[in-house]
Structure formats: C-alpha cells, structure tokens
C-alpha cells in the first residue's frame, strides 16, 4: 500500500518537474512534453500489465486479487470498457473493466502465465473537443494456461489502450501547481495470429 502511495507521489512529482512551468489551460503538448507523457502512459500500462498477471495467477489469494483489482481499476477513467474479439469470432464483446478482471480471475486453468512482448506503439496525442488529449498505446500480451489434466492453451492478444491526458492542478505549500495526468480508458483486445 505504501509502495502504491509512494509510486503515485513520484508520478505527480516527476510530472510537475516536467510541466509545472505552463500556465495556459490545456495548451498544446509540445514534443518534449509528449515524450514525458508517453513515458508516464507506458508506466501506467506496465502497472496494468503487472496487475493483470497477479489477477490471472492462480497462486494469488482471492483477497489479494480483489485488492489488486481495486488498484487496477483506479488506473481507469470511470465507465471504461474492454472490447474483446477472438480469431474465431470477429464480433466484439464488451465488458466493464472490473468484469473483465473477474472473468480473468475465474478462468478455469490450474496454472496461468501472462507475459508481454517487448513491442509497443504509442500514437500521437490528439486533442478532443473538451480540450483533453487522447492517444492509444498498443501492446501485445502472451497468455498461457494449463488445465489440471495438463492441457495447454496459448494465445497472443493485441491490446489497444486509450490514454487520456489532462492538465490538473494541485496545492503544495500554498502554491497552485499544474501538472499533466494520464488516465486509461477503453481497451480493445483482439487475438492475433502470431
């Protein structure tokens, strides 16, 4: 828990160091800032990856998995959904983030291993009508499940993760400081042929 708080504080402090100078509300993101925002977005995506691996791990106690689900949910904007399709069906099925985690936890495997390929792609940040910025981070996840009777299931999914970037304000020692925050949104999960 302390680790979590420390991590969040370091995000905020790191971003302030990068962005505290700007005074214009939701001003355009310059290339240097965009790189720093990309790094922060990747950090959040990596956190999500770690949480997914813990939730999916059959050795994780139920109560711990639930705590991790809470942490993972905090990475997302309210109402975020996962849109899932497989090679067998192009139809997208939609799940609330929490529901997706619960389904992952309930998978009927004896052993589950979730890893991420070292390939990611971060789109440009585009401005929305409300002034917030939106981008998409693409990552690839390898899933391996083994049933009690040693049957193996493997797949690789592409995850296109929405990131929202918003300028926020906080008070530190009586001073108002602005910083950019990143929050995750809808995720499109599609099974790949690789």
């Amino acid at each position: 828990m302390n680790n979590q708080i420390f991590k969040r504080l370091s995000y905020v402090v790191a971003l302030m160091a990068f962005f505290a100078v700007s005074t214009q509300a939701q001003s355009p993101v310059d290339p240097n800032r965009e790189k720093a925002i990309d790094s922060l977005a990747l950090e959040k995506v990596k956190d999500l990856g770690k949480y997914i691996a813990i939730i999916g791990n059959k050795d994780t106690p139920f109560s711990e998995a639930n705590r991790v689900m809470d942490r993972a949910e905090e990475l997302f904007a309210p109402g975020s959904e996962m849109g899932v399709s497989s090679l067998a069906s192009e139809e997208i099925k939609y799940y609330k983030v929490r529901e997706y985690f619960q389904r992952l936890m309930a998978l009927n495997y004896d052993k589950v291993n979730i890893e991420w390929y070292d390939v990611q792609y971060i789109s440009d940040l585009e401005r929305q009508p409300d002034g917030r910025y939106v981008g998409v981070v693409t990552i690839y996840q390898k899933f391996e499940g083994t049933t009690a009777d040693k049957m193996n299931y493997k797949d690789t999914t592409k995850k296109d993760i929405t990131i929202y970037v918003e300028k926020k304000k906080t008070q530190i020692a009586g001073r108002t400081i602005e910083f950019w925050d990143v929050i995750l949104g809808d995720i499109r999960v599609s099974e790949t042929s690789v």
Binding site: V119, Y121, V136, D160
Partner: peptide, 18 residues
C-alpha cells in the same frame, strides 16, 4: 521464438496512426 514474433509485431502496421 519470441524474437521472431517480436520482429513480426514490429513490422506490422499496428495502428492507423502508424
């Protein structure tokens, strides 16, 4: 195996943005 797959993923045009 991972290297080969990662090379394929790298080559793939992953987003319209790309």
């Amino acid at each position: 195996e991972n290297y080969e797959i990662e090379q394929q993923l790298l080559a793939s045009t992953k987003q319209l943005n790309q």
